Simulated scan of single mutants.
Amino acid sequence: MADWERTLETLVRDRGPALVRYAYLLTGDRAAAEDLVQDAVVATFVRRGQLRETAAAESYVRRTILTTFVDGTRRGRRFRDVRHLLVRSDSHEGPERGVQERADVVAALADLPPRVRACVVLRFYEDLTIAEIARALTLSDGAVKRYLSDGTRTLERTLGPVQDDVETHVVGGPGRAR
């Protein structure tokens, strides 16, 4: 077995579920997320078959997932087709509360434009700084701040106030270089 094959096997076995969760946040659909991850893995190993470290391979795959999503080749077409199936309930009692909250977040993310959604996912799911998001998406820091501000405002209208101190993250608040 070649080194790249071992790397691929380890990546898919150990990091595959995390990659699918990451793609799911972007696409809003499990099947689309799985397709996106598969496409990203294939594209990564076709171009970079010499990869020998799982961490480097995962980094390339995550970048490919993000780029593919932002470029619009997988804009959640399937999710928009079934979004009406997610029924909002005003009653958040019982064990289904967490499931409903997750569905609400996914539905709210689906309403964001792709670049705004990517910035929000990278900030709040990947916990990247503004500078890191800007580098990942090849945007200016100011554009990232604007996208985060717009995304946060839109999400708060749908979901209510964000518990995290968004101002600290968006404008670099007191003592933090985010």
Rank of each mutant, 00 (worst) to 15 (best):
Q38L: 12
G28A: 02
L139I: 04
D35V: 08
R178E: 09
L19P: 02
I65G: 02
E53P: 04
V12P: 05
R83G: 04
T154P: 05
A23N: 00
Y24R: 07
V144F: 00
G16E: 04
A40D: 03
Q163N: 11
R80D: 07
E132A: 13
V46R: 12
R62F: 04
G94H: 09
E5Q: 15
D14L: 14
L155R: 02
T64K: 09
L128E: 06
Q50I: 11
E34N: 03
A23M: 00
G175H: 11
V121W: 00
R21D: 13
G98K: 13
A40N: 04
A2G: 14
D14N: 15
A40F: 01
G49P: 08
V166L: 05
R30F: 07
V144A: 02
F124K: 01
T7C: 13
D127K: 15
L159D: 02
Q100I: 13
R13T: 14
R13M: 12
V120D: 00
T64V: 09
A55E: 14
R63N: 10
P113H: 12
P17E: 07
D127S: 15
R47F: 07
L137E: 03
S149K: 08
E9S: 15
T152R: 01
I133S: 02
V144N: 01
S89N: 10
V37Y: 01
V106A: 03
R77L: 11
V166I: 08
V171T: 11
E53A: 15
R115A: 10
D29Y: 03
R117M: 04
G98Y: 14
Q50E: 15
H169I: 07
Q38E: 15
R48I: 03
A108I: 05
G142R: 06
F45E: 06
A40V: 06
M1S: 12
V20S: 05
L109P: 02
R48E: 12
F124M: 07
L86K: 09
R21V: 11
S59K: 12
Q50W: 14
L19D: 01
R123M: 09
V20E: 06
T68F: 02
V42T: 15
T138L: 12
F45S: 04
D104S: 11
L25N: 09
D29T: 04
D14T: 14
I130W: 03
V106S: 03
P95S: 15
A18S: 13
R88V: 08
P174A: 15
L8I: 08
D111F: 06
R30I: 07
R80Y: 07
V121S: 00
T7G: 07
Q100L: 15
T54M: 11
D150Y: 05
E156D: 04
V20Q: 08
D104M: 10
I65S: 00
E58W: 02
L128C: 10
G151V: 03
D111M: 10
T44D: 05
T152D: 04
E156F: 08
R88G: 08
T138M: 13
T54V: 15
D71P: 01
G175K: 09
D3K: 14
A56L: 15
